[in-house]
Design a protein around this nucleic acid. Sequence first.
DNA 1: CACGGTATCGACACAGTGTCGAGTCGGTCA
DNA 2: TGACCGACTCGACACTGTGTCGATACCGTG
Lengths: 222, 222
Amino acid sequence: MASAPARSVRGRRASRPSGDDREGAILATAERLLGERALRAISIDDLARGAGISRPTFYFYFPSKDAVLLALLDRVVREADEALAAVPDTLAADPSRFWRECIATYHRTFGAHAAVTLACAEVRLSNAEVGALWSRVMESWTQAVTAAVEGERERGTAPAGLPARDLAIALVSMNERVLYSSFAHDVPTVDERDVVDVLHTVWLNAIYQTTTPPTGSSRPDR
Amino acid sequence: MASAPARSVRGRRASRPSGDDREGAILATAERLLGERALRAISIDDLARGAGISRPTFYFYFPSKDAVLLALLDRVVREADEALAAVPDTLAADPSRFWRECIATYHRTFGAHAAVTLACAEVRLSNAEVGALWSRVMESWTQAVTAAVEGERERGTAPAGLPARDLAIALVSMNERVLYSSFAHDVPTVDERDVVDVLHTVWLNAIYQTTTPPTGSSRPDR
DNA sequence: CACGGTATCGACACAGTGTCGAGTCGGTCA
DNA sequence: TGACCGACTCGACACTGTGTCGATACCGTG
């Protein structure tokens, strides 16, 4: 949906770099520059020059600077979806580990593209498309958590309490914000090495209302 | 020299409005326009015109658009500080009520200036001064919670667990994000009427690890 | 080889920001 | 009273960045 418009197959090996090369070059330049400064401090001219083209030519590939970021976010989101799908479903056997793995996976994936994540967190407030994709991620994460919590309650593992969806929203929101602060080195922030641990603990308390998780935490040493 | 007479039409009023009037007018215009659209869609010319002055004159009062927002935020923060200081310290007698009142106070105060709050949440990512003030609020809120949690633990009311500061950061961050979504009518979001309730419950679980709060909630009906 | 889609850029129009210098105005003091 | 000062005001300018348009070059295909 959010990927670049599917153009017909472009010319093969030619003396001139193909459009796909250019598109990739713009994307690569953008991610590199985002590591140095904020998107708002990167002009379209910077992006174009970095990709070896002129500013008007940039518009042949992307309608705006934000569209480049959207494409970048799209890649990261896809990566996160894949990584999350690869998390083994140990919810029944070892719920603590399951929640921890999910949280750690988000942390790892978005942390690996912190520059893009940070830029998107800012742009999503002003750009509807980035905002929509971001919301979609939050929503799907929320739905998955809601379902898992309801499952645990049916199994009798977790006690009843707040509507599962409300609880899920609160927890997912907390993760977003805490992870963001951690990537941005915001103040106040949790020590980078402890974030996953801290979030994990709050999740368990909120879902199971118990100090000691149902089964031992995979990293109880702090 | 040889100034055109047609040019000096302005300044008809008997007494010129004072600088304070202008400053207040700019602030008022800004808060009003922020209720209609985002800061980025408000030009300095809009602000100046709204205050009855020209664009260059705007710069006599504020160095930039962001500075106006900073002044606005400063007022809201002051208001929040006062409101919070007025919350009765029932931590020992009725902890549940105490936490609820604190959360509700933030919700009420910032909610009363949702437009300013929303604008600041966006600008703080790009403007260092707004960001610093915002961080200061987060930090002081965090420190207060940290101290209260430590107090509860010493009293034996709350069990040991996560370092109090880490727990505080996680909870305060959650509040910020959930309250923001609520004001912004973001997706996913908790129903406006339930936000305080939901946050309150998660706080109690995280701090006391118990389903039923130490003493009855002041609004258990949902 | 000419045709058409792909790709490219110079030049322009435009919106917004910030600054400068030239003023106006009301009050103070010699 | 009139020279002066500081608060206040704005027209005009310089600058930066965005987005568009029309002209043109390139290249595989018929």
